[in-house]
C-alpha cells in the first residue's frame, strides 16, 4: 500500500524518531550498565539467596505442623489405651532467647518415650506437650532466622496443628 508524503511530513517523522533514539539511548545504556553492575556486585545472588532462604524457612517450618499432628495422634492413641495424656518437657532443648538454624538430634526424652513418639531424624523445632483442663496442648517452636522471634505452632486434643504466630515469622 502506498501513500503520498510531503517533504515536511517526512522531515517530521524523521525528527521524531531521531529524538526518540537520542533520548532513549542514555536510558537504555543506564539500565544496561546498572544491570551489569548489579550482577557484578552479586545483587542477583543476594536476591536469590534471600528468596530461597524464605522458601527454605517455609519448607522447614512444615516440620512443626507435620510432627505436631503425628505427636497428637500418638497422644490420642495413648489416651485411648490408658485414659490419660502424657506431659513432656521441651525437647530437644528449652527454647532460649534465640533459636538455632541447624537440625538437632531429638534423642529419646522421657515423656516422648512414654507416649512412644519421636520425630523421624533431626529436627529444627523444639517440642513440648502440656496438660490442660480438657486434655493436652502440644507446641512446637522454631527460630530459623535467629532473630529471637519464635514461630509457634500448636495442636490440642481437639484441633490439628496450626500456626499461632504470623506467617512471616520463622
Amino acid at each position: 500500500m502506498t501513500r503520498e508524503y510531503t517533504l515536511d511530513e517526512l522531515d517530521r517523522l524523521a525528527r521524531n524518531r531521531f529524538l526518540l533514539g537520542l533520548l532513549g539511548a542514555p536510558l537504555v545504556l543506564t539500565l544496561l550498565c546498572g544491570g551489569v553492575a548489579f550482577l557484578a556486585l552479586g545483587g542477583a545472588a543476594k536476591l536469590r539467596a534471600l528468596v530461597s532462604e524464605t522458601e527454605r524457612h517455609r519448607q522447614t517450618a512444615r516440620e512443626c505442623r507435620f510432627n505436631l499432628n503425628s505427636l497428637r495422634t500418638a497422644e490420642q492413641a495413648y489416651n485411648a489405651e490408658y485414659d490419660e495424656y502424657v506431659a513432656t518437657g521441651w525437647a530437644p532443648a528449652e527454647p532460649g532467647r534465640v533459636g538455632w538454624d541447624k537440625a538437632q538430634s531429638f534423642g529419646m526424652p522421657e515423656g516422648f518415650a512414654e507416649v512412644g513418639w519421636v520425630p523421624d531424624g533431626r529436627v529444627y523445632g523444639t517440642y513440648r506437650v502440656r496438660l490442660t483442663e480438657t486434655g493436652f496442648e502440644a507446641e512446637c517452636r522454631m527460630d530459623l532466622d535467629l532473630d529471637g522471634e519464635w514461630a509457634i505452632f500448636r495442636a490440642t486434643e481437639r484441633a490439628r496443628a496450626e500456626r499461632v504466630t504470623p506467617d512471616g515469622v520463622f
Partner: peptide
Amino acid sequence: WRRRWLVRGFVLGT
C-alpha cells in the same frame, strides 16, 4: 525510513 532515523538517533545518543 522511520527505523533508519531511530537508529541514527540511538547511535548519536550513545
